[in-house]
């Protein structure tokens, strides 16, 4: 592809950096990213990936915009009652016409996850429950798809980049899912997903434009109250149920989620 003169202007601050240049920008414009969830984490991820000029942005979510979302879901203003994927699509189209949005108003489930991720280069996990997180991890490991993890709880968040088989996956660290989702009822500081989501988006842009060092084998643990970032070294677990030496999970089976 060749950048148009409008694109050269729009992305001038990217292009002027030698390490990114026109080549890096073209990689972004040719890329396909699937964002799972368009809520707290999804809002900043969608916002910044759209601004960066990701060519195709798939967005999957089955929720509609509620007033209690707007304390943190900053892309849905004025769209109460609308499906979040439509609201997100409107936002992106206003911000950057270079981006093609594919909106999926549905839940990600064992029956559709493999087909959905197969159309994309990378997947961003902005979901809000353990079932979807474990499902996405397993599908991405089985299909060797980079997965950009972010999750939040009250004043704290976790970020890591999963390059299947190269580094540890989610199950290497948290092999099975807790039976309860404490985050469901705990509340969240509205700015927190902004911090975590922009770190996920940073990792996506770096990966696609082949820049820097990915957050692989490390997890960033952010604590807003202490204003601390802890970097935790995480290793591949040989006993990991999905990417270990003798995996028990070798296909997506609804019983596991």
């Amino acid at each position: 592809m060749k950048l148009t003169s409008d694109q050269k202007e729009r992305y001038a601050k990217h292009i002027i950096m030698k390490s990114m240049g026109e080549e890096g920008q073209k990689l972004l414009l040719e890329s396909r990213v699937l964002c799972v969830g368009s809520g707290g984490l999804g809002s900043p991820v969608i916002q910044y990936l759209a601004a960066a000029g990701i060519g195709t942005l798939g967005i999957i979510d089955d929720d509609v915009v509620e007033i209690s979302n707007l304390q943190r879901q900053v892309i849905h203003g004025g769209n109460l009652g609308k499906p979040k994927v439509e609201s997100a699509k409107e936002f992106v189209e206003r911000l950057n016409p270079d981006v093609t949005v594919v909106a999926y108003k549905m839940r990600m489930e064992p029956g559709n996850v493999e087909e959905l991720i197969s159309d994309y280069d990378v997947v961003v996990d902005c979901s809000d429950n353990f079932a979807t997180r474990y499902l996405l991890n397993d599908a991405c490991v089985l299909h060797n798809k980079p997965l950009f993890h972010g999750s939040i709880f009250m004043f704290e968040g976790q970020v890591m980049t999963i390059l299947p088989h190269e580094g540890p996956c989610y199950r290497c660290i948290f092999s099975t899912s807790p039976s309860t989702d404490a985050a469901r009822t705990a509340g969240v500081m509205g700015i927190l997903p902004g911090v975590i989501g922009t770190m996920q988006a940073t990792e996506v842009v770096k990966y696609i434009s082949r820049l820097g060092k990915p957050l692989v084998g490390r997890m960033i643990y952010y604590d807003a109250l202490g204003m601390r970032f802890d970097e935790i070294t995480v290793n591949k677990n040989p006993k990991c149920p999905v990417c270990g030496d003798n995996p028990q999970i070798t296909s997506i089976d609804a019983e596991n989620y």
């Binding site: 707290g40 997180r133 660290i173 404490a182 985050a183 705990a186 935790i232």
Partner: peptide, 10 residues
């Protein structure tokens, strides 16, 4: 010594 669980919120 740090003790942490996964968190699910998004």
């Amino acid at each position: 010594i740090a003790i942490f669980p996964p968190v699910s919120g998004g």
